[in-house]
Design a binder for these strands. Sequence first.
DNA 1: ATTGTCACTTGCAAAATGCAAGTAAATTAT
DNA 2: ATAATTTACTTGCATTTTGCAAGTGACAAT
Lengths: 148, 148
Amino acid sequence: MKKEKNKLRSHCPVNYGLEAFGDRWALLILRDIVFRGKRTYGEFLKSEEGFATNILASRLEHLIAEGILQREVHEDGRKDVYSLTEKGLDLIPLIFEMVLWSAKYDSRSEAKRIMRLVELIRKDNRKISQKVIEQVRRGEGIVTEYLL
Amino acid sequence: MKKEKNKLRSHCPVNYGLEAFGDRWALLILRDIVFRGKRTYGEFLKSEEGFATNILASRLEHLIAEGILQREVHEDGRKDVYSLTEKGLDLIPLIFEMVLWSAKYDSRSEAKRIMRLVELIRKDNRKISQKVIEQVRRGEGIVTEYLL
DNA sequence: ATTGTCACTTGCAAAATGCAAGTAAATTAT
DNA sequence: ATAATTTACTTGCATTTTGCAAGTGACAAT
């Protein structure tokens, strides 16, 4: 499944984003890292949306190829640790805009459980994103702090 | 191809966004409306990324079902006019974050041709989005004003 | 009346996805 | 040391989605 298709359909900025991370499963991986502090293949597999094993592997590979993720070895040599590069961390403001939108339009959104965070995003996405980027860079998940 | 699958995989705000508009082709339709002022099936079909006719039709239908687009009749009875609902207009800040990210990381990004806009997004996405939302609501495309 | 335009639909081959069942390497248990 | 477990994948195959090419039916222009 080598997808060495270095040929973008266009360099329209929207299209570039779509090709880099705009796949359903790819974005869920990023979510798992940012919101749930996940870092290993096995942890991603457990996500409620249900990754197929091969799809998860191909998306991780793709995100690494795009420079959004990096893979390192775990202290437990069986595991790999996936983490966001700077390019990946810079997607956090975008993910937050998505959360804001869903919080507004999905009446059953689980965003209701992080209203403190949603409110901060609404006030100043840039500012809260910067703070969260630093947390995630340190390997922390962000959920707990903003619960309620 | 009735995709009456009212069952979201989850109400995670990221997942909700993905299911609503997070499809490659769906977002390109939104881009065409916002940045290029397109409004008809035929105009979308001409996009550089190359829509397949059936995919375009199914995505338009999906976006309408999600309440992101609305269809009206054109004065020329053969044509339909597609436009963003308020829910759709509210996606503009998100699209702008995407543009910002791509402008930063795609060295060949066409965002370079709208650096004025990119700079405004960086300074205050909320503010410029509000302005653009009003333009798009009036049926104007936004490109020309921010060219250079 | 005829021809052209427009928004689709249909049929079918090719590609992507989703399971289930491996496999190989590293760790843990005995 | 050996066996059993855990982890990160791969592989095979059925199902689904995509991408063309070629219609079709409603309206418009001539």
